[in-house]
Simulated scan of single mutants.
Amino acid sequence: MTTLSPTSAPAPHAGRTTPASGTRTTGRARRSWTEHGLVFVAPFLVVYALFLIWPLVSGLGMSFTDVDITAVGGEFVGLANYAEAFGDPAVWASLWNTVWFTLLSTVPLVVVGLVLALLANELRVVQWLWRIGWFAPFLLPSGVVCMLFLYMIYPSGFGLADQLLASVGLEPGIGWLTDERYAMLSIVLTTVWWTVGFNFLLYLSALQAIPPHLYEAAELDGASAWRRLWHITLPLLNRTTGLVLVLQVLASLKIFDQVYLLTGGGPDDSTRPLLQYVYQQGFTGYRIGYASAVSYIFFALILLVSLVQPVLARRRRAEEAAK
């Protein structure tokens, strides 16, 4: 039997060619570029920087100048625009209108969305029709929604609401959009009908994720439907409720379309939100620098509100871990 000597053993890489170091380095760099996904997100980053980051930086710079809409001026004025904004009564009145609308709309949007989801979760035959019926208005543009409600609450007895009042013997001609007592409530009603479908779907998806055996065990223990709702359903929906609250508050603070299309600011600016005031200062009063300062003050307020949800989530996780 013949044996191979160590000197006659074939080389482990015999017959293979070693690539040049430059080629290997280039290929590694190309793989590193694609492995990190930069080549795929680069177009989005360019568009994001061009249409979001640059306007943010540019607007912040304008807030320290007296530039107008025709780009005339632009002299540096420091914090003068911010000082004027904090001392402007119209800013505080518009901010109060925004907060008042948020308070009036958030509670019914959360409660109605939860109630509709609870009812839909109990349906077994036409649940799909219930879901479509309540989510479909959310897909409509704001202009279409406002035109529908203008038809229904049109004053002087021509609207559907006034006709219903007249049919039951009540006095028609209520100024739904021209009376300070009803203008904001009319906008809230329009918003609730328009956007409650989004909260409804969030709650419905959370309800369908609750394990059924929890309800079965509670029912075997003799728990009533109310107790199952109070001790099982609502506690398990806490995270969804927190998310809905934060999203709803942020959306309500940014109200503009409904007010501008329905009331134009309302009688004596009683429904004018802060974003409409920014629009008027920038595109009607031509004070781009001052409008930028007001908008960045409002941006800081929204940023503070948006930080509430992560803080609450961390606190809730800490409490759960402590238990």
Results as ranks from 00 to 15, higher is better:
Gly197His: 07
Val144Ser: 04
Leu236Met: 11
Asn238Tyr: 05
Gln127His: 03
Pro211Val: 07
Asn199Lys: 05
Leu148Lys: 03
Ala217Thr: 01
Thr178Met: 12
Leu229Asp: 04
Gly197Asp: 06
Ala120Val: 14
Phe138Thr: 13
Leu140Arg: 13
Leu123His: 14
Met147Glu: 10
Phe138Pro: 00
Leu201Pro: 07
Glu122Tyr: 11
Val145Ser: 08
Thr190Lys: 05
Glu122Pro: 04
Trp128Ile: 11
Ala206Asp: 04
Val188Phe: 11
Gly242Trp: 06
Asn199Met: 04
Ala223Asn: 03
Pro235Lys: 10
Thr178Val: 15
Arg239Trp: 12
Ile153Gln: 03
Thr241Phe: 07
Thr241Tyr: 06
Trp176Met: 03
Met184Glu: 02
Leu243Pro: 08
Leu165Gly: 10
Leu116Met: 12
Thr233Gln: 07
Asp179Val: 04
Tyr151Trp: 14
Ala183Thr: 02
Ser224Phe: 02
Thr195Ser: 05
Pro137Asp: 14
His231Pro: 01
Phe200Glu: 06
Leu148Ser: 05
Gly143Tyr: 08
Ala136Gln: 02
Ala166Thr: 12
Leu243Val: 14
Gly242Thr: 00
Phe198Asp: 01
Leu243Phe: 14
Gly143Arg: 03
Arg131Trp: 09
Ala225Asn: 05
Leu116Ser: 12
Trp194Met: 11
Ile232Glu: 00
Leu165Ile: 15
Val145Arg: 06
Phe200Thr: 05
Leu177Asn: 09
Ile132Cys: 09
Leu119Asp: 03
Ile187Tyr: 10
Met152Asp: 08
Asp221Glu: 04
Ser156Trp: 02
His231Asn: 01
Ala161Cys: 00
Arg124Ala: 14
Pro155Thr: 06
Val145His: 08
Arg124Cys: 12
Leu234Val: 15
Ile210Val: 15
Leu170Tyr: 15
Pro212Arg: 15
Leu129Gln: 03
Leu214Ala: 00
Ala120Ser: 14
Leu185Phe: 11
Asp221Leu: 02
Val144Gln: 08
Ala161Asn: 00
Val249Ala: 04
Val125Glu: 05
Pro141Asp: 06
Leu189Trp: 13
Leu118Glu: 11
Met152Ile: 11
Leu189Ser: 12
Ile187Gln: 08
Gly143Ser: 15
Ala117Asp: 12
Ile132Thr: 15
Ile232Pro: 07
Phe135Met: 12
Phe198Cys: 03
Glu219Asn: 09
Pro211Thr: 09
